Amino acid sequence: MPTISNKGINMPESPIRKLVPYAEAAQKKGKNIYYLNIGQPDIKTPEIALNAVRTHSLDILAYSRSEGSEAYRIKIAEYYKRNDIHVTHNDIIVTTGGSEALLFAFGSIMDEDDEIIIPEPFYANYNGFSTASGIKVVPVISKIEDNFALPPIEEFEKLITPKTKAILICNPGNPTGYLYSKEEIKQLADIVKKHDLFLIADEVYREFVYDGIEHYSILQEPGLEEHAIVIDSVSKRYSMCGARIGYLVSKNKELMKTALKFAQARLSPPTLAQIASEAALETPQSYFDDVIEEYVKRRNTLINELEKIEGVKVAKPNGAFYCIAELPVKNSDNFAKWLLESFDYNNNTVMVAPAAGFYSTPGVGLNQIRIAYVLNEESLKMAVKILEGALKVYKD
Score class of each variant (00 low, 15 high):
1 M>H: 07
2 P>F: 08
5 S>N: 00
6 N>C: 06
12 P>F: 15
13 E>N: 13
13 E>K: 13
15 P>C: 06
22 Y>V: 12
27 Q>K: 11
29 K>T: 06
30 G>R: 03
31 K>D: 14
39 G>H: 09
42 D>P: 12
43 I>E: 09
47 E>V: 03
48 I>K: 15
54 R>M: 05
57 S>I: 08
58 L>G: 08
58 L>M: 02
59 D>F: 03
63 Y>G: 00
64 S>M: 00
64 S>R: 04
71 A>G: 05
83 N>S: 13
85 I>C: 13
87 V>C: 05
90 N>A: 04
94 V>S: 10
95 T>H: 15
99 S>C: 03
101 A>V: 01
102 L>G: 14
107 G>H: 12
108 S>M: 11
117 I>T: 01
119 P>K: 00
122 F>T: 04
125 N>Y: 13
127 N>V: 08
130 S>I: 06
131 T>P: 01
133 S>C: 10
134 G>R: 13
135 I>E: 13
138 V>Q: 13
143 K>L: 04
145 E>I: 07
146 D>T: 11
146 D>W: 15
152 P>C: 00
153 I>T: 04
154 E>M: 03
160 I>L: 12
161 T>A: 11
169 I>M: 15
171 N>T: 10
172 P>R: 01
173 G>Q: 06
181 S>T: 02
181 S>I: 01
182 K>M: 03
182 K>F: 10
185 I>K: 13
189 A>R: 00
190 D>Q: 02
197 L>E: 09
201 A>M: 04
201 A>D: 10
204 V>E: 09
205 Y>K: 10
208 F>L: 14
211 D>W: 15
213 I>A: 09
217 S>W: 05
220 Q>I: 04
221 E>Q: 11
221 E>W: 09
222 P>N: 00
224 L>T: 06
228 A>C: 00
231 I>D: 05
236 K>F: 14
238 Y>D: 14
245 I>D: 05
246 G>Y: 05
252 N>Q: 02
255 L>N: 03
261 K>F: 08
263 A>R: 04
263 A>G: 10
263 A>C: 04
267 L>A: 02
271 T>F: 13
271 T>H: 13
276 A>H: 07
278 E>R: 10
279 A>Q: 06
281 L>Y: 14
282 E>P: 03
282 E>K: 07
285 Q>T: 14
287 Y>A: 07
292 I>A: 03
296 V>C: 08
305 E>Y: 10
310 E>R: 02
310 E>K: 07
310 E>Y: 00
311 G>H: 13
312 V>W: 06
314 V>I: 05
320 A>R: 01
321 F>E: 07
324 I>N: 06
325 A>K: 08
326 E>H: 05
326 E>Q: 10
328 P>A: 01
330 K>G: 11
332 S>N: 04
335 F>C: 01
355 A>V: 12
355 A>M: 07
357 G>E: 12
357 G>H: 12
360 S>H: 10
360 S>M: 05
360 S>I: 09
367 N>L: 00
367 N>F: 10
368 Q>V: 02
370 R>D: 09
372 A>F: 05
373 Y>M: 06
373 Y>S: 01
377 E>W: 12
377 E>Y: 14
378 E>D: 15
378 E>N: 15
379 S>P: 08
379 S>Y: 11
382 M>K: 11
384 V>L: 12
388 E>M: 11
388 E>S: 14
389 G>I: 00
389 G>H: 15
395 K>E: 12
